[in-house]
Design a protein around this nucleic acid. Structure first.
Lengths: 156, 156
DNA sequence: GCTGAAAGGGTGATTGC
DNA sequence: GCAATCACCCTTTCAGC
């Protein structure tokens, strides 16, 4: 396992690093030789850069992207959650414990949390939200389509 | 490259598949032999399952998770966007073209789009939103913390 | 589905430029 | 930073069970 620096250490990335990250994001399993060709370096140099990007914490992990629909999650909802007075921490804990909440951000403004839910059915939405509505007001939006799927931020 | 089926083909996954996906999500680079140990199968069988999961489209891709802070994106915002009459498609196109919008869902309800922005500074927020506000009303929330970072949906 | 073995390829380290 | 080499490990594929 590679020793990582603190995550917020400012990394100075050149054009090659950015190209490398883009290529890795697309296919993290391609051979180093192929990556090297893509970024215009030799294989050893490329391998070295990948190690460095990992050590710097720029690359957090190598992972697989899983299609939620293939797992039966045919529905996505985005829910804004505004805890009732005194319920903030408890609401956060409840959300954390319900695995269908696949993402949750605490934000400024009236709605304290904005969360993403993966669901098998619309009935399940009701079932899950009922665990929250005793302690918070919720506002639900069903995802109809995704014009921009999670993508890389600009690397340039 | 592996031939993939349509993404929405219902995959019937057993416990072993789910364990395998969880292990891969955590570290997609670990040797098949290690994965095999984790799920209690032999290496060849495990490799075969991974191939099948790819062919079924359950695994969409092998990728790297990149820390946006390491790229200098110290700020995240979630913006609800409600296009003015007749501006829906144009707004969608504008969002698509601005790379700082790293995610955008079209949803039911009054706010047509819910988007995530990666930003270098608060000034940049203003700059980017100004490209949208001619054609839509926006409502912005700044991310203060992330109680639940993008995680796997329940595999059970 | 398993084991065992063989073949091929990629990786990682080293050396020298 | 590059190129070349070498040893090692991993993967893949094939038998046979």
């Amino acid at each position: 396992m590679i020793k990582r620096l603190a995550p917020s250490v400012p990394a100075s990335l050149d054009e090659t690093d950015r190209a490398l990250l883009a290529a890795l994001a697309e296919d993290a399993r391609q051979p180093v030789a192929e990556l090297a060709r893509a970024v215009g370096l030799s294989a050893p140099s490329t391998a070295e850069r990948i190690r460095r990007l990992e050590a710097q914490g720029v690359i957090e992990r190598f992972t697989v992207q899983i299609d939620p629909r293939a797992l039966g999650f045919t529905l996505q909802a985005i829910v804004r959650v505004k805890p009732l007075p005194g319920q903030l921490h408890l609401v956060e804990e409840v959300i954390r414990r319900i695995p269908e909440f696949v993402e949750c951000d605490k934000v400024t403004g009236d709605d304290c949390f904005i969360c993403r839910l993966y669901l098998h059915s619309i009935e399940q939405l009701d079932e899950i939200l009922s665990k929250v509505t005793e302690r918070a007001e919720t506002s639900t939006a069903i995802v109809k389509s995704t014009p921009v799927a999670r993508r890389l931020p600009p690397l340039g």
